Computed example of a mutant assay.
Amino acid sequence: MKKLEFLILGKNEPILEILVRLVNANEDWHAAGFSNEETAKDYFNQNLLDIVLLSSGIESEVEMQTFFKAQQPDIEIILHYGGGSGLLQSEIYEALEERRKRKLYENHA
């Protein structure tokens, strides 16, 4: 089974490190973390990703969401601003469920 690929973008380095560690703790997930928008865009353009997780401190949040969706319309974008590992997992699983439902709908439309 292919691992789900994540890009995590956040300005707070300690929080970014925690988010990457939490995502990578799931053996079916792989995350790369960035604190610089341009570096994140470069990585995004070179990789097929499943989920973008935006964390705190991003000044150009709407611009970044627009960029990601323009390049990969099926990408799931999660806005995560804290709340612990349980909330993070819930947000990820919710995004995956929404993605699954959307694909089912598209296949039956």
Rank of each mutant, 00 (worst) to 15 (best):
K2D: 10
K2E: 14
E5R: 14
E5V: 13
L7A: 09
L7K: 00
L9R: 03
G10N: 04
G10T: 08
K11D: 13
N12E: 13
N12L: 09
E13S: 13
I15T: 08
I15P: 00
I15H: 05
L16H: 03
L16T: 04
L16I: 05
L16K: 06
L19R: 05
L19A: 04
V20R: 02
V20N: 00
V20W: 03
R21A: 07
V23W: 02
V23S: 04
A25L: 01
A25R: 09
N26P: 01
E27A: 06
D28A: 14
W29T: 02
H30Y: 08
H30V: 10
A32H: 06
A32D: 04
A32G: 10
G33N: 08
G33W: 06
F34P: 02
S35E: 08
N36C: 05
E37C: 05
E38G: 01
T39G: 13
T39C: 08
T39Q: 15
T39K: 14
A40F: 00
K41C: 09
D42K: 14
F44E: 01
N45R: 14
Q46D: 11
N47Y: 04
N47G: 03
V52L: 12
G57Y: 09
I58H: 10
I58A: 04
E59K: 13
E59C: 07
E59T: 11
E59R: 12
S60V: 07
S60E: 12
V62S: 05
E63V: 06
M64Q: 04
Q65W: 08
T66I: 12
F67H: 11
F68I: 06
F68R: 02
F68Q: 01
K69P: 03
A70L: 08
A70G: 09
Q71D: 05
Q71M: 11
Q71V: 15
Q72L: 11
Q72Y: 08
Q72F: 07
I75N: 02
I75Y: 06
I75H: 03
E76D: 08
E76I: 11
E76S: 14
E76W: 06
I77K: 02
I77H: 03
I78C: 01
G83C: 03
G83S: 05
G83Q: 00
G83N: 03
G86Q: 15
L87I: 12
S90H: 14
E91H: 14
E91K: 14
E91V: 05
Y93N: 06
A95P: 04
A95G: 10
L96G: 01
L96Y: 09
E97D: 07
E98S: 12
R99D: 13
R102D: 11
K103P: 01
K103R: 14
K103I: 14
L104T: 12
A109I: 15
